[in-house]
Nucleic acid binder design. Structure first.
Lengths: 155, 155
DNA sequence: CTAATGTGGGTGACGTGTCAACCACTTGGT
DNA sequence: ACCAAGTGGTTGACACGTCACCCACATTAG
């Protein structure tokens, strides 16, 4: 019987609209910065950052994909491209004939170290500096809350 | 002389990490929903929503692009694809020989009306319902604050 | 009127994301 | 030992986004 949609109103609508616009503008600007001052795409950055900071520079492809919440085929394509550009390499896994280790090359390490420092300055400038400590705290809790809520929710 | 990067710490880091993860997961899930229950991509949705709700179903290409904060070439490509699928059509502008009006077709209207109702239910389920009214209000203000801050900031 | 410059919009090439199918290897049951 | 089912990973086709460049028309200066 298809009840009519419950459109957003008042604070609901304000929160959603502002959040969406803010997030789009912020992410867009940050990825253009990564691109223009390190020559890497935002995806390159995410992959290298995850691999080196949380995987010690060497990880199985699926583990890396889960870490950054990507699909395996996306990761596979991305690794192929980054390998061609010398940032990563693939190695066979001795324990599991199907497996592939993804390894950050020296050039990969260099690139991420360069980029990370610049990136954090942009994050500060555009995001952290815009908010008071208590607003930062509030946003941390709100984001956490939404994440938990989503995990408890079907798809 | 290249001061060392001021890495994020404590609440700064928590706010940023949680925000990024939340936003990625939320946007990802919502666009998969739009896709699977209306057959449209998230981009199709944005274009049709902007065009019909705020442009009366008929707008110049550049105006539409500005409205949703896209580059003109992206919009042009997108309109081309949507035109092929019957959701939009192009019309010449009599006042300006270079101009192009983008018009939502009846099929376009139908599609967006169908999709919008379902979309808002997902937004409620995944986002609005996760937060208290005061958290929604806080997020609205925080987002607004970041937006204003970015506008006052060079690039 | 005409030439320079600006603006609205399109195009093609290339990097990226998704989906579905596929291959090779592993695992578990019999 | 063997076969079914599962898992790790790759591939190809196609939709999408960006960049640089292009073209047609408009505007302004002279």
């Amino acid at each position: 019987m298809d009840a009519p949609p419950r459109w957003l109103v008042g604070e609901e609508k304000a929160a959603w609209d502002n959040f969406i616009r803010m997030q789009e503008k912020l992410i867009g600007r940050l990825s253009r910065h990564v691109q223009s001052d390190s020559g890497m795409s935002a995806s390159d950055y995410v992959v290298l950052a995850g691999l080196t900071e949380r995987g010690g520079g060497r990880m199985r492809l699926l583990d890396l994909a889960k870490l950054v919440e990507w699909e395996k085929s996306r990761m596979s394509h991305q690794v192929t491209r980054m390998t061609k550009r010398g940032l990563l390499s693939r190695e066979d896994c001795p324990d599991d004939g199907r497996g592939a280790f993804i390894v950050a090359t020296p050039a990969g390490y260099e690139a991420i170290e360069e980029a990370a420092g610049r990136h954090v300055e942009h994050v500060r400038r555009l995001f952290v500096d815009a908010l008071t400590p208590s607003q930062l705290k509030a946003l941390a809790r709100i984001s956490e809350r939404v994440l938990e809520h989503m995990e408890a929710q079907p798809d």
